[in-house]
Every structure is written in structure tokens, then in C-alpha cells.
């Protein structure tokens, strides 16, 4: 096996201007993922609730939402948000968009990632809701709580504790999916790593560094959620032994 004479140059990662580019890329990844995750959790819980309430129209809406996002690749969604969505606005809206929003790719990325991840969060919460005994609902209603109050104070907190492991995995997946926003031009860490290669021909080092970023982020998220799990644990419920 012939190993080509490849000069590793790891300084590419921290040398200027590449060092600050990498740093900026990391920051973009984290910010984009975090914002998208916030949207995903809020929208996801709502859709999850829609899917289980006894109101047919809401259930149908929820199911359609989930099916649309589950069966269409994330890239298609991204492209739709970036290329197609602005065209759906009236001409004045489009002008406003291109004038006021400085980095539309980032916004499209956040919206796309947020709404896509929301469908997966919705499914997890739905699974959580379905595993809660109907008696809990009855007890809450019997004391006079409205459906909204019941979900807010009893059902959603309980479901959250039940689905915490898959919720954590979804958080990680959100971070990983943020890499795809490079296709619409967002300079997150993966794009940055690839981009630097075109200047330095040392893409291997930068992509390795980017890999480490994701792995470290993953470790961080898992540890963080582990702490969350400890805090909100329901005594008596089966949890993962670390």
C-alpha cells in the first residue's frame, strides 16, 4: 500500500485567518443548532399534544405535519425554505426580506432545522403521552383542571421524564443535522472545514478537527442531559444506570 507523501499540517486549524474561521464556524454551529432546538421543542410539544387530544381536526393536522417531515429528506426542506419560501411572499415581502435580513441562509437554516426536528420531537412526546395511564388524565380533570392546565402541570412534565433518553438523542441529531445547512451557504463548522481546504489543501486536518467538535459537543450534551435527568428523576421509576 503506497502512502502518498502527505505533509500533515495541523497548524492550519489555529493559524490565522483559519483559526478564527474555525472558531466562527463552531460558534455558528452551536448557535444555529440551539435556536433550531428551541423552536423544535416548542413546536414539537404542541404537535405532539395535537396528535393525542380528542379533537379530530387537531389530530389530523398533527399527523400530516409529522408525515410530511418524516417522509421528505431534510435537504429538500432546507432548499424549500431557502429558495422557494421567499418566492411565496408578496413582492413587497420579498424586498423587505432581502433588505432587512442580513444572513437569510442562517435564518432559513434555523427555520428548516427547527421545523424538521420538531416533527421528531412531536413523535417522542406522543409516545410519552400514550404511555401515561388514562387515570392520570381523569384525576386531573376530576379536580377541575382544564385540559390546558392538565397538560401543562401534569402530563407534559411526566412525559418529558419518560422520554428523556430519546429526547437527548434527538438533541444530538439536531446538532449533526446543522451540518447540512452548508448546502444553502451557512458557514458552520463543516462548511468551514471544507472551505479551508480550497485554500490550503489540508482539508483532512480541518475535517478531523470538525469531527472532534461534533464528538465533543455530543459528549457535552450527554453529560448535560445526564445532570438534568438526575435533578428531575421520579423516585421509583426505572432509569439508566450510568
Amino acid at each position: 500500500m503506497e502512502i502518498i507523501n502527505y505533509q500533515f499540517d495541523w497548524s492550519v486549524i489555529w493559524q490565522q485567518p483559519y483559526g478564527s474561521m474555525m472558531l466562527k464556524g463552531m460558534f455558528t454551529t452551536v448557535l444555529l443548532s440551539f435556536l433550531a432546538w428551541c423552536i423544535a421543542v416548542v413546536v414539537g410539544i404542541t404537535i405532539g399534544v395535537f396528535r393525542v387530544v380528542p379533537v379530530r381536526s387537531l389530530r389530523i393536522f398533527g399527523t400530516c405535519y409529522v408525515q410530511v417531515f418524516r417522509n421528505i429528506p431534510f435537504l429538500v426542506h432546507l432548499f424549500f425554505w431557502y429558495y422557494a419560501a421567499p418566492l411565496l411572499l408578496p413582492k413587497s415581502g420579498q424586498m423587505w426580506l432581502y433588505d432587512t435580513v442580513p444572513n437569510y441562509a442562517f435564518l432559513a437554516g434555523v427555520m428548516g432545522l427547527g421545523t424538521y426536528t420538531a416533527s421528531r420531537v412531536a413523535e417522542q412526546f406522543r409516545a410519552g403521552f400514550l404511555s401515561i395511564s388514562p387515570g392520570q388524565f381523569r384525576a386531573a380533570f376530576a379536580s377541575g383542571l382544564t385540559p390546558f392546565q392538565t397538560y401543562r402541570y401534569v402530563i407534559i412534565p411526566l412525559a418529558f421524564r419518560i422520554i428523556l433518553p430519546s429526547f437527548t438523542t434527538e438533541f444530538l441529531t439536531c446538532f449533526k443535522n446543522s451540518a447540512l445547512t452548508m448546502t444553502i451557504g451557512v458557514m458552520e463548522i463543516t462548511h468551514t472545514a471544507y472551505y479551508i481546504d480550497s485554500f490550503t489543501w489540508h482539508g483532512l486536518e480541518t475535517t478531523t478537527a470538525a469531527s472532534l467538535v461534533y464528538l465533543t459537543l455530543g459528549l457535552f450534551v450527554v453529560t448535560l442531559m445526564g445532570q438534568v435527568e438526575k435533578r428531575i428523576k421520579i423516585p421509583g421509576m426505572i432509569t439508566r444506570r450510568s
Binding site: E2, L172, S178, Y194, L204, T207, S211, Y214, L215
Partner: peptide
């Protein structure tokens, strides 16, 4: 654990750079 912690797109790039180093 390694590959599940990375985005596929990054793996594509990484291998795209890595494989030539070993195969020439």
C-alpha cells in the same frame, strides 16, 4: 459510537480527504 456522533456529510468529506492519503 464514533460514526453515530458525526454528521454524514462530514464523514463524506473526511473520507474524501482521508482515503487518498492511504491509497495514493
Amino acid at each position: 459510537h464514533f460514526f453515530r456522533g458525526l454528521p454524514l456529510i462530514l464523514v463524506i468529506f473526511w473520507l474524501y480527504f482521508l482515503v487518498p492519503v492511504f491509497t495514493g
